[in-house]
């Protein structure tokens, strides 16, 4: 079935709202406006104000409300406009949602799903464009996922709602218009495993979110040059699926990690360290990283693109691991 990433998200929301009366959607502009990225367009008319709730511009407040509802037995889906704004709710997410099961000795659980847009590429400048997935992936007590495909956009939400602990879903803002087929039978329903999106033997390209598509394009280009690249879509950023990564390294002995986030203290660094710990003696070259430039994301398009990982840089890094 031909569809888009945005429609897949909307279908997932519709299914969740239909199946479970405890589910409701809350966030800025999710109702009357239909969602900043139009993901919830039409849902207000369909499900009513009780379940599609517009909020004031106060992330700390509505995330806190979501946590409270979850504690009370509901299954809230909180939408935050972008990861940049989610920092206003960090206290609620890190100090409350992530800790309460632990601090109550298991008596409380917070089955909360937070969706937020992330990433650059739409000329929204430095306050709307950053990739801060690693901030959340750092925190024990929450699960972090990044659907990169239409299929994952459609099915990860259901899996997240089935969890009894908080799940943060990162939807890259450039993916909403992605068009493609949605298979009738999903190949992945879980939010535990990374996926090998392309098999290869010479080098492993590890990416998540929008970067997966750049890695796939790089793999295609590498194939023309006779280099067989394997592409891993991490899917879940916390906990990391080490087994899939290591299995691939054992096969290819070389790795390039692609991450739109900044290189310093980021996810790419974490993945590189895991490879070092688990597969050092399998490596035939140092692990390479292709990351976002260490600047606030620029507004002008040519500078914004220059600050992001691009296919050419991924190809170059992959070739460099082969000498």
């Amino acid at each position: 079935m031909k569809t888009t990433y945005r429609e897949a998200v909307r279908e997932a929301l519709r299914e969740a709202l239909t199946k479970d009366p405890r589910v409701f959607l809350i966030g800025e502009d999710v109702g009357r406006y239909g969602g900043t990225y139009a993901c919830s367009k039409g849902l207000l008319a369909e499900f009513g104000e009780e379940r599609i709730r517009d909020t004031p511009l106060s992330e700390g407040t509505f995330v806190g409300a979501g946590i409270g509802a979850a504690l009370g037995g509901m299954r809230p889906i909180v939408e935050i406009m972008t990861v940049n704004f989610s920092l206003l709710a960090l206290d609620q997410i890190v100090n409350n949602a992530a800790t309460l099961r632990h601090m109550s000795g298991g008596q409380l659980s917070v089955p909360l799903v937070i969706r937020m847009a992330t990433g650059a590429g739409r000329q929204l400048a430095a306050q709307h464009s950053h990739s801060l997935e690693c901030w959340y992936a750092h925190v024990p007590g929450i699960r972090v996922v990044a659907p990169a495909t239409i299929e994952d956009a459609r099915h990860m939400l259901g899996a997240a709602l089935a969890e009894s602990d908080p799940v943060v879903i990162f939807e890259h803002a450039t993916l909403y218009n992605l068009e493609g087929d949605l298979p009738e039978r999903p190949s992945f329903m879980d939010i535990d495993h990374a996926a090998v999106r392309r098999e290869g033997t010479d080098v492993t390209l590890i990416a998540y979110g929008a970067s997966v598509h750049k890695a796939l394009a790089a793999a295609e280009e590498l194939a023309h040059g006779g280099v067989s690249a394997e592409v891993i879509d991490l899917r879940t950023l916390r906990p990391l699926d080490e087994a899939t990564i290591i299995a691939s390294i054992v096969k290819t002995h070389r790795a390039v990690v692609v991450d739109e986030g900044w290189r310093s203290v980021g996810l790419a660094a974490e993945i590189s360290a895991r490879i070092m710990e688990r597969a050092f003696y399998e490596l035939d070259a140092p692990v390479a990283r292709v990351c976002g430039a260490e600047v606030p994301i620029p507004y002008p398009q040519h500078l914004e693109q220059a600050a992001l990982p691009q296919v050419g840089a991924i190809v170059a890094a992959a070739l460099a691991t082969r000498g």
Binding site: Y281, L283, D284, A285, R322, G323
Partner: peptide, 28 residues
């Protein structure tokens, strides 16, 4: 490379005598 070093040990190959063709001239 770590993998090359381990392989050389198991094969008893003298690494000093090998000219590398890997990244930066490393022995692969």
């Amino acid at each position: 490379s770590p993998r090359a070093r381990r392989r050389a040990e198991s094969l008893g190959v003298d690494l000093a005598a090998i000219a590398g063709t890997g990244p930066g001239g490393a022995v692969s």
